[in-house]
Amino acid sequence: MLEHEGIQAIRDGVRNLCAQYDSAYWRELDARKAFPEAFVAAMTNAGWLAAMIPEAYGGSGLGLTEASVILEEVNRCGGNSGTVHGQMYNMFTLLRHGSEEQKARYLPRLASGELRLQSMGVTEPTTGTDTTQLKTTAVRQGDRYVVNGQKVWISRIQHSDLMILLARTTPRDQVAKKSEGMSIFLVDLRKAIGHGLTVRPIANMVNHETNELFFDNLELPLDCLIGEEGQGFKYILAGLNAERTLIAAECIGDGRWFIERACRYACDRVVFDRPIGKNQGVQFPLAEAHIEIEAADLMRWRACELYDRGEDAGTSANMAKYLAAKASWEAANACLQTYGGFGFANEYDIERKFRETRLYQVAPISTNLILSYVAERTLGLPRSF
């Protein structure tokens, strides 16, 4: 895909905003495990987080292609788009499957920043990515649903007003397919926390705000249901394809940050009376990392193209995420090796970004599950589970 003037304008705009939040800003937040309130507010006010909300609801009406560039540039500038990407992809379920009343009620307020939809409650501690086995239930009782169960690794609850929740509304032994009987709800966290929903933060190796959730007879009004009851798993999948493509773009941004940093350092750092960049032992890993990032980028554009045309982007989205996560990790290793001991010093930011990009080998879907997806869905091999 050849980038057009509109894409370059987006890059320039995001870079100009990110220039106000330099490495020292992110380093200080990382040290305190703090949320980038100022950065998120600036991104919201500039309209970048409303990129994919239709113009009729106050957004920009852009596609996944443009959204991916926004998140790529945040990471390429040294930031952490993991603090804002939820607002991009969590609203897909609402946008595609919500009622007209729900969209009119929430989308304009999401576009303006009055409301934040940064969280999605799917993963559970005993089922992991085997989503069809989830145990959280939502039982209809008169004019409400009553939710009980547990979720884990649910991010940005503390900085979100709303959450997409997947829960089982029909027992597994009463459905024809294991993927049936689950439903999607839009939870108002301001009303839920402390009234049936308990949040327990999880300390972790990166500055990524994530939590365990405990539901104890949480009551939800009927109008919290998105789409048709029992079809939630199908609804979630479309949003996950967008999520994986956006994560791929973030990894590409990370990879380019690592390579650019390493190349500058390799040209400036002099050992044995010569820049270390003259040594092929330094050159080759960086060249290889650059090649792999560029290849992953091509698959990112392919996934975006299919998604924006309304075609099945599942395979391309998964492959883009796999290639980009792998490439960014290799770029991180090459960069750290180029810096040597200085790469471990906080002031150079390598170790921070090193930790941040490692996450994407595991989440939002592990590389092994992507390999299973491609083997079985694309190559026609027998299912392994």
Score class of each variant (00 low, 15 high):
M299S: 08
R300I: 14
W301D: 12
W301S: 13
W301L: 12
A303K: 08
C304L: 10
C304K: 03
E305Y: 15
E305F: 14
E305Q: 15
E305H: 15
L306N: 13
Y307E: 12
Y307D: 11
D308R: 13
D308Q: 11
R309V: 08
R309C: 14
R309M: 13
E311K: 15
E311Q: 15
E311M: 15
D312I: 11
D312V: 12
D312T: 12
D312G: 12
A313P: 11
G314E: 09
S316T: 05
A317P: 05
N318S: 14
N318M: 14
N318F: 09
M319R: 06
M319S: 01
M319A: 07
A320H: 06
A320P: 04
K321V: 02
K321I: 01
K321C: 10
Y322D: 03
L323T: 05
L323K: 12
L323P: 00
L323Q: 14
L323A: 15
A324F: 06
A325E: 02
K326G: 03
K326D: 13
K326I: 08
K326H: 11
S328I: 01
S328Y: 01
W329S: 07
W329V: 04
W329T: 10
E330K: 14
E330T: 09
E330H: 11
A332C: 02
A332M: 04
A334I: 06
A334Y: 03
A334P: 01
C335N: 04
C335R: 01
C335D: 02
L336V: 00
L336Q: 11
Q337D: 13
Q337C: 07
Q337M: 10
T338E: 01
T338I: 01
T338Q: 04
Y339N: 07
Y339M: 06
G340Y: 07
G340E: 09
G340F: 04
G340S: 09
G341K: 10
F342Q: 13
G343F: 02
G343S: 05
A345T: 10
A345F: 12
N346F: 03
N346W: 03
N346K: 05
E347Y: 07
D349I: 05
D349A: 09
I350W: 05
E351C: 00
R352Y: 00
R352E: 00
K353F: 00
R355Q: 02
R355P: 00
E356P: 00
E356M: 00
E356D: 09
T357H: 01
T357S: 09
T357E: 06
T357V: 09
R358D: 02
R358Y: 02
L359G: 02
Y360S: 06
Y360L: 08
Y360M: 08
Q361D: 08
Q361L: 14
V362F: 14
V362W: 13
A363R: 15
A363S: 15
A363L: 15
S366N: 15
S366T: 14
T367Y: 10
T367S: 13
T367G: 07
N368A: 13
N368V: 10
N368R: 14
